[in-house]
């Protein structure tokens, strides 16, 4: 068995298994927690509009903090959108999802993918630089932050190298790319990357609570 066979075979199988296991474990573990009973009179009968409202409003910088947060926030948005374009727009990736889910959608031109990939890598390097240079962020950061950053950028870099056939033979580059995705999948449910699911749950919960209490959102 060569490296590519290992990556496409057992490595991916184990990564998928650990990913779905971890995701369902963590999500259920959180969703099934006991809610604290609230004995006060609710201000609004339904609380879900507040949940949606907060998810939206918290995705945009508040005017008071805007000068301080706009840079970090926009770089963050840039690499998140870049990742979405690369992950879901590149023809071989769509093929990968189709083989798993049976779903199919049209791909974006490769030029768009390459540019998005390059911008994503640049933005990810900038956010790491900010994390390392800003004293407060540095103090707040732990291994999880750095490792989550690493497993995010590695698939993008290895994918770009594989597409460009740079640095090694294509089969090796493709194998390394798939292995880096396997690593991402394994780490995903257990590190801060879990924010991709939990961010909506936590914001929604807060929003619903605010709505009930009648707090401004």
């Amino acid at each position: 068995m060569d490296l590519l066979q290992f990556a496409r075979g057992p490595a991916l199988t184990w990564a998928f298994a650990i990913f779905v296991f971890g995701m369902s474990w963590r999500l259920l573990g959180i969703l099934l927690l006991k809610r604290r009973p609230d004995y006060s009179e609710p201000r609004h009968a339904t609380s879900w509009p507040g949940a949606i409202k907060l998810i939206i409003t918290r995705s945009w910088p508040r005017r008071e903090f805007r000068p301080r947060t706009v840079f970090g926030l926009s770089v963050g948005y840039i690499f998140h959108f870049g990742l979405v374009i690369v992950v879901f727009g590149f023809a071989p990736h769509i093929m990968f999802f189709r083989s798993l889910t049976g779903l199919d959608w049209p791909n974006l031109p490769n030029a768009v993918i390459y540019i998005s990939g390059a911008i994503t890598i640049a933005a990810l390097i900038i956010v790491l630089g900010r994390r390392l240079t800003n004293p407060v962020m540095r103090l707040l950061s732990n291994f999880d932050d750095y490792f989550s950053w690493f497993v995010t950028i590695t698939p993008v870099v290895t994918g770009m190298l594989a597409v460009a056939h740079l640095g090694a033979r294509y089969e090796t580059l493709l194998a390394v790319h798939i292995l880096s995705i396997a690593l991402l999948l394994v780490w995903f449910p257990f590190g801060k990357l879990m924010h991709s699911a939990l961010i909506f749950i936590s914001r929604g919960t807060t929003g619903a609570l605010f709505e009930r209490k009648g707090a401004s959102i």
Partner: peptide, 13 residues
């Protein structure tokens, strides 16, 4: 296709 998983992962998943 080359980049797709080799095994049928549905039962494992």
């Amino acid at each position: 296709p080359l980049p797709t998983p080799l095994a049928d992962n549905a039962p494992v998943i």
